[in-house]
Amino acid sequence: MNIEPRLPHNRKSPNIDSTDIAPEQIAGLLTRSAEQLDRKTVEALRRARHVALNRQTVRAQAFTLDGRHGVHWQLPHTPRQWAATALLLAVIAGSTGYWQHLRRHEMMTHLDVAILTDDMPLEVFIDHISE
């Protein structure tokens, strides 16, 4: 099975530096070479391609961030992925809520101390004191 391209007489030999040949020329040479193959070889190549395609395993999509072509989200597919996502969101929401609660409490304490120690009397800030 000889698939070496048969160059026209006015072209350089195949041993020339590949960088001298433009990609379009290479594609053209390959096409011409393929056209010159005998039927038996073409059929063998077709079968080999078919077998190779059948052997190729298609992997399930994973829940990932693909950074190669810009960041984009892929939705989770399995219940396990949905559960993990829900758990992650719950943890984020819980943490945010807890942090806000702490911050609110801290601010409230700060104000309470300020009211209790300011030289302005307490009555100024309170409408009705029971005592």
């Binding site: 409230m108 309470d112 300020a114 009211i115 307490l122 100024v124 800030f125 309170i126 409408d127």
Partner: peptide
């Protein structure tokens, strides 16, 4: 409520 109102006034 009174404490909260006092905090708002102080603020």
């Amino acid at each position: 409520e009174q404490r909260q109102a006092a905090r708002e006034k102080y603020r």
